[in-house]
Simulated scan of single mutants.
Amino acid sequence: MRLSRRTFVEGVAALTIAVSIPAMAQAEDFKMGLLVPGSVSEEGWNRIGFNALKGVEEQLGAKISYVELQQNPASFEKAFRDYASQGYKVILGHGFEFQDAALEVALDYPDTYFLISSSSIHEGNVIGLNTDTSQPFYLMGVIAAKMGKKAGLVGGMEIPPIQQAFVGFKNGAKSVNPAFPISEAYIGNFTDTTAAKEAALSMISQGADFVVPNASGATVGGYQAISESGPAVRSFSIFSDFTQVAPNNILGLYVADYAQGVVEVVHSIKDGSPPKENIIFGLKDPKVISFTFRDDGPVSVPEDIRAEVKAISAKIAAGEIKTDAQ
């Protein structure tokens, strides 16, 4: 259910303003704002959103600003309204959780474009930018089932983009071995690194030798648990490079250059030709999504498995394998 614009109560969940929103700006300025669910100083999901914002600044000459928020829908709506009322042409809500607030505010600001990460929406001036993470996670599942005995998946909140990623992992693993055991847990937020660490340790204690955390800012807690459990527990770096956190455990890196994808979308808006449908980035977009193997760790993916994974990746990119089928 979408939030009513009247549900906000003044004084609830004050915003942490990371870059102040200018009170006045020249009319000709092209401005973009960013809302992130946490801190952009953390490696992972929030940093990706910030990199996208900086890419728009550097490549398109936009005036930029961002706010760091806690998980509070009322604060989402207020932040969207603050930016839209001050003439920001594009506002990126970096996560599916921003979708309802954007749909509510967009009704009052038809000339502002609201981009929502990890969303499949396209409703007027609200446009979803959805990276199909089921595709690289499918490749991770294939590797886990070929090299491991059991896998564990630690998620932040049980929302569609994380569920989609985990479905991809499970489908990849089961394409190798339908009986391959996989445990799955959600910590209920994106900030509690201790909870992510404890969930990962619990899975490892129950025999998981492949563990993949996917919990935005809390993700690092999962990698800490993996690292402390020794090189027998393997993982993959997701969104950003976490090899410094778990140098002996990571076999491959899924890196999303979401920034460049966002730049292209914002460029089209600036030029007066906004997308007519939601955007889905996948393995067919190598400038946005890449999955690479790591060679500088104590354990690496054998060459025969690498060749098979590369062939599977090509089939996914060509649309021959559907990775998110339930």
Results as ranks from 00 to 15, higher is better:
residue 62 A to D: 04
residue 275 P to T: 15
residue 59 Q to Y: 11
residue 204 I to W: 13
residue 285 D to M: 05
residue 181 P to F: 00
residue 117 S to K: 11
residue 240 S to L: 03
residue 247 P to F: 10
residue 292 T to W: 04
residue 87 G to Y: 07
residue 24 M to C: 06
residue 155 G to P: 07
residue 273 S to N: 13
residue 7 T to W: 15
residue 183 S to I: 02
residue 67 V to S: 01
residue 161 P to M: 04
residue 220 V to C: 01
residue 88 Y to L: 05
residue 112 T to A: 12
residue 120 S to M: 08
residue 257 D to V: 05
residue 207 G to R: 04
residue 147 M to F: 05
residue 203 M to D: 14
residue 231 P to M: 11
residue 203 M to Y: 15
residue 64 I to E: 07
residue 218 A to T: 12
residue 292 T to D: 11
residue 103 L to D: 02
residue 224 Q to K: 11
residue 259 A to P: 00
residue 326 Q to W: 15
residue 33 G to N: 04
residue 287 K to A: 07
residue 223 Y to F: 15
residue 18 A to N: 10
residue 97 E to Y: 02
residue 296 D to W: 06
residue 154 V to P: 07
residue 285 D to H: 13
residue 274 P to D: 07
residue 302 P to R: 06
residue 212 V to S: 03
residue 236 F to C: 06
residue 161 P to T: 08
residue 197 K to A: 01
residue 72 N to V: 12
residue 61 G to L: 05
residue 36 V to K: 04
residue 286 P to M: 09
residue 270 K to S: 07
residue 218 A to P: 09
residue 141 G to T: 12
residue 121 I to K: 06
residue 187 I to N: 08
residue 105 V to R: 01
residue 245 V to E: 09
residue 118 S to Y: 11
residue 1 M to I: 13
residue 18 A to P: 00
residue 166 F to W: 01
residue 276 K to G: 14
residue 34 L to A: 07
residue 9 V to D: 02
residue 41 S to D: 03
residue 63 K to I: 04
residue 155 G to I: 07
residue 229 S to A: 15
residue 308 E to H: 07
residue 55 G to Q: 07
residue 229 S to E: 03
residue 12 V to E: 14
residue 311 A to R: 09
residue 183 S to V: 11
residue 90 V to R: 11
residue 13 A to C: 13
residue 176 V to K: 03
residue 214 N to V: 14
residue 206 Q to D: 15
residue 173 A to V: 08
residue 14 A to E: 08
residue 134 S to E: 09
residue 33 G to K: 06
residue 308 E to S: 03
residue 269 I to M: 14
residue 308 E to K: 03
residue 233 V to K: 00
residue 77 E to V: 02
residue 134 S to G: 10
residue 2 R to A: 13
residue 208 A to C: 15
residue 88 Y to K: 04
residue 271 D to H: 08
residue 287 K to M: 06
residue 3 L to V: 15
residue 28 E to D: 13
residue 48 I to H: 06
residue 153 L to V: 13
residue 262 V to E: 11
residue 267 H to F: 10
residue 67 V to L: 08
residue 130 N to F: 11
residue 135 Q to F: 01
residue 257 D to S: 05
residue 77 E to P: 02
residue 129 L to F: 12
residue 91 I to M: 14
residue 10 E to M: 11
residue 74 A to T: 15
residue 257 D to M: 03
residue 215 A to W: 13
residue 66 Y to H: 15
residue 234 R to T: 12
residue 184 E to P: 01
residue 255 V to M: 04
residue 117 S to W: 05
residue 66 Y to R: 06
residue 58 E to M: 04
residue 173 A to P: 02
residue 173 A to S: 09
residue 323 T to E: 06
residue 73 P to G: 03
residue 108 D to K: 09
residue 107 L to N: 08
residue 17 I to P: 00
residue 198 E to G: 00
residue 224 Q to C: 00
residue 243 T to V: 11
residue 268 S to W: 08
residue 300 S to T: 14
residue 271 D to G: 03
residue 179 A to R: 07
residue 206 Q to M: 10
residue 207 G to C: 14
residue 115 L to S: 09
residue 194 T to R: 09
residue 205 S to R: 15
residue 165 A to H: 01
residue 68 E to H: 02
residue 230 G to W: 13
residue 235 S to F: 01
residue 248 N to S: 11
residue 84 A to P: 09
residue 227 S to T: 06
residue 76 F to N: 08
residue 62 A to T: 07
residue 40 V to Y: 08
residue 231 P to L: 07
residue 39 S to G: 03
residue 1 M to V: 14
residue 21 I to P: 02
residue 79 A to F: 13
residue 31 K to E: 05
residue 163 Q to E: 10
residue 90 V to F: 10
